[in-house]
Design a protein around this nucleic acid. Structure first.
Lengths: 107, 107
DNA sequence: ACGATCGATAACCCTACAGCTATAGATCAA
DNA sequence: TTGATCTATAGCTGTAGGGTTATCGATCGT
């Protein structure tokens, strides 16, 4: 309903940030240090990216002593999936008309 | 294959630009003037957004006299859908791995 | 032919933000 | 306790990019 993919798009638009998220999806829980080692940017930069990802609901953190484990949140991408589906739905709805169908074949 | 959601994310991150694309998906082909009327920004701004959308393969243009009709390109969102699927796949794969691990520990 | 309209481009401004270094706060190891 | 390690925050800088107005080229109506 109140699917606002805005934050998701904006958050995932940055390549470094998206790479961090992808890594968390692929390899599961990671500490900030581990993520920093693979990110190619400084540790403060990684921390800031993680803050943005957390704010967008894409990751969550699990503090354990002085280390903090971050992990991707399943279901966080649902608004994005819904949005793409909606766009495709619009397209297919218009495709039902013969006129649009012919127009599509014309290209 | 179409493994570059980067341009899509960056292009769709801007709310104004995404609104233009959504309108094209919803209502089909539109002239720049029509889009400008609903965009809330100046005509040059709309033209620039359309240029970015076109560059990303999200829209195409059909010149007709001095007017240019823009329309959303179906299938342009496929890399985005693939990416989300891949992320979900990673998640589920790790879930399966966990289940297998627990199953093995159980016996 | 001529003025009007449509869209793209140019040139500029200004804000957002990703990056950095330095440092604070917290926890661990000795 | 003390020094080392881990992460977050503060403060700063540079740049990408979205907004504007002005204008140009192209096309249409008269």
């Amino acid at each position: 309903m109140a699917d606002t993919p805005d934050a998701l798009f904006r958050t995932l638009a940055d390549p470094t940030r998206r790479a961090i998220f992808e890594r968390l999806c692929r390899d599961g829980e990671q500490t900030v240090g581990a993520l920093t080692g693979a990110a190619g940017v400084s540790q403060p930069a990684v921390s800031k990216h993680l803050g943005v990802l957390k704010q967008a609901g894409l990751v969550r953190d699990r503090p354990e002593g002085r280390r903090i484990h971050y992990s991707a949140r399943p279901g966080a991408l649902v608004p994005l999936i819904d949005w793409t589906r909606r766009m495709e739905g619009f397209w297919e709805a218009r495709l039902d008309g013969l006129e649009d169908l012919l127009k599509r074949m014309d290209q």
